[in-house]
Nucleic acid binder design. Structure first.
Length: 488
RNA sequence: GGCGGGUUCGUCUAGGGGUCUAGGACACGGCCCUCUCAAGGCCGGUACACGGGUUCAAAUCCCGUACCCGCUACCA
């Protein structure tokens, strides 16, 4: 694959080298659809430019981060097939680094100690809001001399470290998706870098790590746009070149509000449970906020996705998660996957459902899957509605029985049909069809009535492929047996 | 409230002054096919948030309004 030059104006310091990107989830929740899409974009970008994807766990919020969530995120990444090249790194392992950066900022007077208590701040914020003033930090400790601060600090007084935000001017950055974004510095408060427990806040740790890990492109959710100037200020204070920022629009629920538990699946792993093929999910997610060049079909396997993906085609507006379209991608992938490729995925479904496949001949098994593929919407179907093709241990759908087998005479004719099948020596599609149609004519019933009834008897479902193809898939013995033993 | 961003069919989007009586995909409706259900084939409806400008000409540029989203923490 030829490497195209980065069209985004990579700074000279970075140009020529491979991009290093990172996915940096916070283990305070599952890997949800939005996070997954961000991870995917990073992955696609890294793979497109043959760069490096780093996985970094931002677990500096001790209150809310849990090991279970870390595990869930890793599982989600693995299921999605988003392999990373470095990490996972945990920010809690790196607090010394952050303290070092904070010390640097303190020393250069870009930061200062603040002794205001959380409670005081709370009160002042409430007051400010009540008086119609913006609830920003009021700078009480901003002018405490470094000597006094050091004295109070060593005297055991609790303090946080705040960044000294310039009081005038503005801070801007060129976003690869949104273009130039500018904020008045007066709008930015002196934010906290180091908490009173000496732990870093997000702004400190991201910047420190992105520098340390030599990140070239920060591809993350648009919810971080408003925070970016703070980070830009840190880069500037440190005199370190900035990465390129690329903020990707959010994914919303069908009601156009932020995607949440209310909208169903929280964790991407829920889609594994629903029988979604990872590659289909990737394809679907990629097209949520990113558009392939005009004329490109929407079914884009990994290879094409990787070769086509770039930051400049990312949309600026939020996208609504459309489950129906996901399902469409899934059916397309099921249909396009060769049975050999589908088989292991289907076997997982059987394992989950406790199904023991009874088709031991591999060729027959693959042929059966081939027959069923066009009708499956989900991998799960192979363990539910299509179960009867693989095991005798299946149940018959009462609704199907009520619709096609309510007539006792049909049942009787099917038993007769079974007898004819049993004694015939040419078990073939046309052969079986002829026997059935002849019998229908003899009994003066519509062939369709027998066909539909037989379908329910053979598959337990009112919906299945062409009946005679079904018979071939089941084989003579099972076909005869099931026709004879129609359940009520 | 302040700040930032967004707004083209129900959804994802194309389009970036004339080629737009606005294109594609999913979804939806109808017909055909038919042994069920899909699939497939054919046909169809539906969109430039609103109001002002600028211009010979605006979905496309500017301003305002509305609505939506985000941020506004010792969360990330």
């Amino acid at each position: 694959m030829p490497l195209s030059p980065d069209s985004l104006g990579v700074p000279a310091s970075i140009a020529g080298s491979r991009p290093r990107v990172r996915f940096a989830p916070s283990p305070t929740g599952y890997l949800h659809v939005g996070g997954a899409r961000t991870a995917l974009f990073n992955w696609l970008y890294a793979r497109h430019y043959r760069g490096t994807l780093i996985l970094r766990i931002e677990d500096t919020d001790a209150e809310r981060s849990t090991p279970e969530m870390v595990e869930g995120i890793l599982q989600g990444m693995r299921w999605l097939g988003l392999n990373w090249d470095e990490g996972p790194f945990f920010q809690t392992d790196r607090v010394e680094t952050y303290r070092g950066v904070a010390a640097t900022l303190l020393a250069s007077e870009h930061a200062y100690y603040c002794f205001c208590s959380k409670e005081d701040l709370e009160i002042r914020r409430a007051q400010a809001t009540a008086e119609g003033r913006p609830p920003r930090y009021d700078g009480t400790c901003r002018n405490i001399s470094s000597e006094e601060a050091a004295r109070r600090k060593s005297g055991g007084e609790a303090a946080v470290v705040r960044f000294k935000v310039p009081q005038s001017g503005s801070t801007a950055f060129d976003d690869a998706v949104f273009g130039r974004v500018e904020f008045a510095n007066a709008e930015v408060e002196d934010f906290v870098l180091l908490r009173s427990d000496n732990g870093p806040t997000y702004h400190l740790s991201v910047v420190a790590d992105d520098i340390k890990m030599r990140i070239t492109h920060v591809i993350r959710g648009a919810d971080h746009i408003s925070n970016t100037p703070k980070q830009v200020m840190i880069y500037e204070a440190l005199g370190v070149p900035m990465p390129i920022f690329a903020h990707v629009p959010l994914i919303l629920g069908p009601d156009k509000t932020r995607l949440s538990k209310r909208h169903g699946a929280t964790s991407v792993l829920a889609y594994r449970e629903e029988g979604i093929i990872p590659e289909a999910f990737r394809n679907f997610l990629a097209l949520l906020g990113w558009t392939a060049p005009e004329g490109t079909p929407e079914i884009l396997g990994d290879e094409r996705l990787i070769s086509l993906f770039d930051l400049n085609a990312i949309s600026r507006s939020d996208a609504v998660f459309d489950r129906a379209k996901l399902d469409w991608f899934n059916t397309e992938y099921i249909r396009s996957y060769p049975s050999e490729k589908l088989l292991p995925l289907i076997e997982e479904e059987w394992a989950k459902a406790g199904i023991k496949n009874q088709i031991h001949d591999r060729q027959s098994l693959l042929a059966t899957i081939e027959l069923l593929k066009p009708r499956a919407r989900s991998l799960k179907d192979f363990a539910t509605s299509l179960r009867a093709f693989f095991t005798d241990d299946f149940e018959t759908d009462p609704a199907a029985t009520a619709k096609f087998l309510k007539d006792e005479s049909v049942r009787q004719i099917l038993i007769e049909l079974a007898q004819r099948y049993e004694t015939c020596d040419d078990f073939s599609e046309p052969g079986m069809e002829k026997l059935l149609r002849d019998l229908a004519a003899e009994k003066n019933v519509k062939a369709g009535a027998l066909i539909n009834g037989a379908r329910v008897a053979l598959t337990g479902q009112g919906v299945a492929p062409s009946l005679f193809a079904v018979m071939m898939a089941l084989g003579k013995d099972r076909t005869v047996k099931r026709l004879k033993e129609i359940p009520f």
